[in-house]
Simulated assay, not measured.
Amino acid sequence: MRMNASGKRWMGDKRTPLADQVYADLRKRIVSLELPPNSSLSRQELSAYYGVSQTPLRDAIQRLEAEGLLDIFPQSKTVVTLIDDSLVRECQFLRTALETEIVALLAADPDKSKIDAAQESLARMEWVLARDRELEEFDRLDKQFHRGLFIAADKQGLHDLVESRSGPLDRLRRLHLHAQGERKPERVIADHTKIIDMIRESRVEDAKEAMRAHLAGTLARLETLTELFPDHFPITAE
């Protein structure tokens, strides 16, 4: 268990329930691979790091277990799960079903100003990629782009549903983003640009196909990523 970058105890937001704060931060650390698969977590050290009692910590851990990000072994240990391809595919199915319909709604809507915020996220992604290729910020803006489309379609609740199930897929996306020799950031920007263009041109079916192709990119690299990062996935029987 590591302290934060400054060596000081993590500080949360007093306006948010402790269990929610711990859940959000611990989930972020798992999804970002700061805590990689098979990491063993000490509840005592987590409690000290976050400055909370065992009750909010237990609630946060149970939520992460339900998402498939932690395995809890009673009276023994808590371990970050390996990346389960069945959960990845389940989330991919959910995202594709919802986001293709989201872009269809936006393409059919004559008010194209609704997607201005999503397009602004895309412009900032281009800026980050051109300047310093800060992948953490790039990934945040990528997610902001997709969230902006849901908000534009007045379907933010569905975005929250997708987010609540996306942990395993987000870890795979992070591996894809960091894979040597991959050009994912450039492809992401090209895909986002095409999606925005199809929406602005009111091309409903083309917008759906552009989103479908975009979301399929990481899953198509699953076998390659398994070979590049074998310690992150279960061992497959020959």
Rank of each mutant, 00 (worst) to 15 (best):
Ile102Glu: 03
Leu122Asn: 02
Ser202Cys: 04
Ser166Leu: 14
Asp206Met: 11
Ala153Lys: 11
Ala130Arg: 15
Ser113Thr: 04
Arg124Cys: 00
Leu172Phe: 01
Lys194Asp: 03
Ala190Ser: 09
Asp197Met: 01
Ala179His: 11
Asp142Arg: 12
Leu177Lys: 04
Pro185Ser: 08
Thr96Pro: 05
His146Gly: 02
Gln119Val: 00
Ser166Lys: 10
Ser113Asn: 14
Ala152His: 12
Leu98Gly: 01
Pro110Gly: 13
Ala108Asn: 15
Glu136Gly: 12
Glu182Gly: 09
Phe138Ala: 09
Ala152Val: 10
Glu101Ala: 13
Glu126Lys: 08
Ala104Leu: 01
Ala107His: 05
Leu149Met: 07
Val103Thr: 09
Leu105Phe: 10
Leu122Pro: 02
Ala130Tyr: 03
His176Trp: 15
Ala207Val: 14
Ile189Met: 03
Ile189Asn: 08
Arg173Ile: 14
Glu99Met: 15
Glu201Phe: 09
Glu120Leu: 03
Ala107Gln: 04
Leu149Asn: 07
Ile151Lys: 02
Val128Pro: 03
Gln144Val: 01
Gly148Arg: 15
Leu158Arg: 13
Phe93Tyr: 12
Gly148Cys: 03
Asp206Cys: 05
Glu137Ala: 07
Arg183Cys: 12
Arg95Val: 05
Gly181Arg: 05
Asp191Ala: 11
Asp109Lys: 07
Lys114Met: 12
Ile195Trp: 06
Arg133Gly: 03
Arg147Ser: 07
Leu106Arg: 01
Phe93His: 12
Gln156Trp: 04
Met198Pro: 00
Lys155Trp: 03
Val204Tyr: 08
Arg187Trp: 13
Arg133Trp: 06
Ile199Leu: 10
Leu135Asp: 12
Ser202Thr: 05
Lys194Ser: 06
Glu163Pro: 00
Asp142Phe: 12
Asp191Ile: 01
Glu99Pro: 09
Ala107Thr: 09
Ala117Ile: 14
Leu141Glu: 05
Arg187Cys: 06
Ala179Trp: 03
Leu105Glu: 14
Arg140Ser: 10
Val162Lys: 14
Gly148Asp: 07
Thr193Glu: 04
Glu205Trp: 08
Ile196Thr: 07
Ile199Pro: 01
Gln180Val: 11
Ala153Met: 05
Lys155Val: 02
Trp127Leu: 04
Gly181Phe: 11
Arg165Thr: 07
Glu120Ala: 02
Ile189Cys: 13
Leu135Trp: 02
Pro110Ala: 14
